[in-house]
Write a protein that binds this DNA or RNA. Structure first.
Lengths: 218, 218
DNA sequence: CAGTGTGAAGTTGTTCACAGCA
DNA sequence: TGCTGTGAACAACTTCACACTG
């Protein structure tokens, strides 16, 4: 009986992915507000700032479990904490990055990952000139040492920013040495076991959308 | 009567966006095939390679207008040309990139944009040390000179890889000097007129999805 | 009224089912 | 039998409509 109620309250379907993708926008916006000056914010206001549909925002925020005050809105501090819990910012995951090219460097220089739950703890490359150097406290190791480091540090997330030609090999190594999720920045369609969380960030997909829309405008 | 038939054949709704986003995957795969060895490819095979649903591939390919041979598949060269036409690779657009940090450098070093219809012809920054240097044939100019260059070169696409704090200003300048589309790599929700094609690439959105899935696996 | 909250309707995209074909 | 091609069923999101509240 208790279990049944629980199932109704928190249905196993979970939060829709588009909502998850918008959550960082809300979080980012809310963090910029000086809560000494404003304590509450309404969904329509958020919608206006972020160019979203007001009821969309209401629906999204409902997943946080925070209930708003009629005519006033949602308490900002509550929302922030709820979103951070929802996204899991308080259970940080360690990450390895393989491929210290320009894109890899860009990600290593990204200071914004740590506060949102991902901590890049080591990078790998095969280029002698890069091995041993530091990028924002993150050391670049010879990829030969991946196994050794992975056994020691047990990273959950693997970021691949290598040339496409070696992406699958790198993914295979990551899988063998216990990675839980792979964030793939190459255009290769990686083959990984279904238990691995795979997130592709295909740069050409966005470009295709842009060019398609541009050409559509007559 | 003739006009009516046309309207039925090619409905104005156009190609679904998810299909557009998958097209570069097909294109990339097809280009890698040696057409001297294999002339045809079937949708189920493509699906297996790219980890997609077979009927999904069939639906997507139907938008190219290419009709496949039963039991054999689609003629590879025909498909490539059709996809390139659909995505508009043959009508290249010039682009300006503003913000020559790591991410900007990564994009400038990306050799794969030219063949797919986007040609980065100039980059801008405010950092004295970078101004005047070349990255892959692309020169970095003082952002002060944006107007002058834009009037001369009339780029259609503006890529923003600046720090978030200046992203909106940059977007405003781009809009004033006639940009048609903006590819935004910052986490800022840019405000632009509705006539401007706006494509956001929010890195945190993908990260949120990864972390969310990771935490869901109990 | 201007906001929250929610069930219903609408829209879009995916998956299924099956006809046709070589 | 294995593939194309397509209409129909289904699933996922978004948008609408409206009841409710201070």
């Amino acid at each position: 009986m208790e279990a049944e109620r629980k199932q109704e309250t928190k249905k196993p379907t979970g939060v829709p992915e588009p909502t998850i993708r918008r959550m960082p926008l809300y979080h980012n916006l809310l963090k910029k507000i000086n809560i000494d000056e404003v304590e509450y914010i309404s969904a329509p206001l958020i919608a206006r700032i972020l160019n979203l549909d007001p009821t969309q925002v209401v629906k999204d925020l409902s997943y946080t479990g925070i209930i708003g005050k009629t005519r006033v809105g949602y308490k900002i501090v509550e929302l922030i904490i709820a979103i951070e819990n929802l996204l899991g910012f308080h259970h940080p995951h360690d990450a390895f990055l393989v491929g210290a090219g320009n894109l890899g460097f860009a990600l290593l220089n990204y200071t914004g990952f740590k506060p949102v739950g991902m901590n890049i703890i080591a990078a790998f490359d095969t280029d002698r000139k890069k091995i041993g150097t530091l990028v924002q406290d993150v050391k670049i190791y010879d990829f030969e040492r991946y196994r050794e480091m992975a056994e020691k540090m047990k990273p959950a997330i693997g970021i691949i920013t290598t040339p496409p030609s070696v992406a699958q090999q790198v993914a295979d190594v990551m899988v063998v040495w216990g990675i839980k999720a792979i964030w793939n920045y190459t255009q290769v369609s990686l083959r990984v076991p279904p238990s691995i969380v795979l997130q592709d960030t295909h740069i050409y997909a966005s470009l295709a959308v842009i060019i398609n829309k541009l050409n559509k405008e007559k």
